[in-house]
Amino acid sequence: MQQIIQSIVFIVAAILHGITGMGFPMLGTTALAFVMPLSKVVALVALPSLLMSLLVLCSNNKKSFWQEIVYYLKTYQLLAISSVIGSILGVKLLLVLPISWLFVLMASVTLYYSLNGLLGIYKKTKTIQVVANSKNMIIFGLLAGIIGGATNAMSPILLIFLFSETDDKNRIAKASNLCYLLAKIVQIYMLKDQYLLLNNREYGLIFLLTILSIIGLYIGIWLRNKISETVFKQLVFGILFILALKIGYNGFVGVL
Rank of each mutant, 00 (worst) to 15 (best):
residue 109 V to P: 06
residue 101 W to Y: 13
residue 80 A to H: 01
residue 111 L to P: 01
residue 137 M to C: 07
residue 84 V to K: 00
residue 102 L to H: 13
residue 90 G to H: 03
residue 137 M to G: 03
residue 78 L to D: 01
residue 82 S to C: 14
residue 119 L to Y: 11
residue 83 S to M: 07
residue 72 Y to Q: 12
residue 86 G to L: 04
residue 105 L to C: 15
residue 105 L to Q: 09
residue 110 T to E: 09
residue 102 L to P: 02
residue 75 T to A: 08
residue 112 Y to I: 15
residue 82 S to G: 13
residue 100 S to G: 14
residue 99 I to W: 04
residue 134 S to V: 01
residue 128 I to H: 00
residue 86 G to V: 04
residue 101 W to H: 08
residue 96 V to S: 14
residue 96 V to L: 08
residue 119 L to R: 11
residue 138 I to E: 00
residue 105 L to G: 15
residue 74 K to H: 13
residue 100 S to A: 15
residue 131 V to S: 07
residue 85 I to L: 09
residue 122 Y to T: 07
residue 120 G to T: 04
residue 104 V to N: 11
residue 130 V to L: 03
residue 129 Q to W: 06
residue 132 A to C: 02
residue 124 K to R: 13
residue 100 S to T: 12
residue 97 L to H: 08
residue 138 I to M: 07
residue 111 L to I: 11
residue 134 S to C: 06
residue 117 G to W: 00
residue 92 K to P: 00
residue 133 N to L: 04
residue 82 S to W: 02
residue 129 Q to T: 15
residue 125 T to K: 09
residue 112 Y to C: 12
residue 99 I to T: 12
residue 90 G to E: 04
residue 108 S to T: 12
residue 85 I to S: 00
residue 82 S to F: 12
residue 113 Y to E: 07
residue 105 L to A: 14
residue 99 I to Y: 05
residue 91 V to W: 00
residue 116 N to C: 13
residue 71 Y to M: 10
residue 134 S to A: 10
residue 102 L to T: 10
residue 124 K to P: 02
residue 128 I to E: 01
residue 127 T to L: 09
residue 104 V to G: 08
residue 104 V to K: 05
residue 107 A to V: 03
residue 117 G to E: 02
residue 115 L to M: 15
residue 100 S to D: 14
residue 125 T to A: 13
residue 93 L to W: 12
residue 122 Y to V: 10
residue 119 L to A: 15
residue 110 T to S: 14
residue 109 V to K: 08
residue 101 W to K: 11
residue 120 G to Q: 04
residue 118 L to R: 05
residue 71 Y to I: 06
residue 97 L to G: 07
residue 71 Y to G: 01
residue 120 G to K: 03
residue 113 Y to V: 12
residue 125 T to H: 07
residue 115 L to Q: 07
residue 138 I to P: 00
residue 111 L to D: 04
residue 83 S to A: 11
residue 129 Q to D: 08
residue 116 N to V: 10
residue 136 N to S: 02
residue 93 L to S: 09
residue 103 F to H: 06
residue 126 K to I: 08
residue 106 M to Q: 13
residue 107 A to D: 03
residue 104 V to A: 15
residue 112 Y to D: 05
residue 86 G to E: 01
residue 98 P to V: 14
residue 135 K to M: 06
residue 87 S to Y: 00
residue 125 T to F: 06
residue 72 Y to T: 11
residue 112 Y to Q: 13
residue 98 P to W: 13
residue 84 V to Y: 03
residue 117 G to V: 01
residue 127 T to Y: 06
residue 102 L to Y: 14
residue 95 L to K: 07
residue 95 L to F: 08
residue 71 Y to S: 14
residue 109 V to A: 15
residue 73 L to H: 07
residue 122 Y to N: 08
residue 92 K to C: 05
residue 129 Q to P: 01
residue 98 P to K: 15
residue 73 L to Q: 09
residue 112 Y to S: 10
residue 136 N to C: 03
residue 78 L to F: 13
residue 72 Y to W: 13
residue 130 V to G: 02
residue 137 M to I: 01
residue 132 A to F: 00
residue 118 L to H: 05
residue 134 S to R: 10
residue 71 Y to W: 12
residue 99 I to H: 05
residue 117 G to T: 05
residue 97 L to K: 11
residue 83 S to T: 10
residue 93 L to A: 13
residue 82 S to V: 09
residue 126 K to P: 00
residue 133 N to C: 04
residue 129 Q to I: 09
residue 109 V to Q: 11
residue 108 S to P: 05
residue 130 V to H: 02
residue 91 V to C: 03
residue 126 K to V: 08
residue 73 L to W: 09
residue 115 L to C: 14
residue 121 I to R: 04
